[in-house]
Amino acid sequence: MSQVAHAPEHPTVTGIDNRKLLMWVFLASDCLFFGSLIATYLIYFGRSVVGPYPHDILDIPVTSVSTFVLLLSSFMFVLSLAAHTRGDYKAFRVWVFCTAVLGSTFLGFQVFEFQHFVHEGLTPRTNLFGTTFFTLTGFHGAHVTIGVVWLLTLFFLSLRGKLGADKNLAVDLAGLYWHFVDIVWIVIFTVIYLTGVALGPGVGK
């Protein structure tokens, strides 16, 4: 990579790196994206005319496990960022690889869940619940997939020695994205799984 030997450029007005500001503005924008999907889900909550309904089919124990997996992956990532910051690239690679593995595990849970639902007779075409549920969790899954690819990219870049101290920000940015995906899941798990199932049938009409 070429960004080695050039003269220091003008620092930014705010002192924040351009890429970091870009990432945060993007995350703010993504809040509106997931907000709209969640709004759609909630507006149609309790409006499906045929089953299966959320309380028939959502499996709280299994999803709790996958939620723990995603929370743990965020913890792994902060350890990898800390390792990278102090220059311990080997530890960085271990932790970032663990993060990617946990992310993939979460995706595995999601594939399992989707297949199970289809088997039980819930597809996006079945009813409004299916339509809104698969769209919302599917787009979250797509975000996780992009995150896993990003983490693995960092892992391989580091293996090839291309992720030195000058690339700390690249690790930081991937982390911001990864943790954002985690907090979106915190909301989805609470709203759709826990609250949605606890409220049971017939609420929200």
Binding site: T40, I43, Y44, R47, S48, V49, V50, P124, R125, N127, L128, G130, T131, T132, T135
Partner: peptide, 18 residues
């Protein structure tokens, strides 16, 4: 697009869509 391309129900009045 999902409604049209993949048969989702977002705006399908018969499935309760609004």
């Amino acid at each position: 697009v999902f409604d049209r391309a993949f048969g989702f129900n977002f705006f399908n009045v018969f499935a309760g869509g609004d």
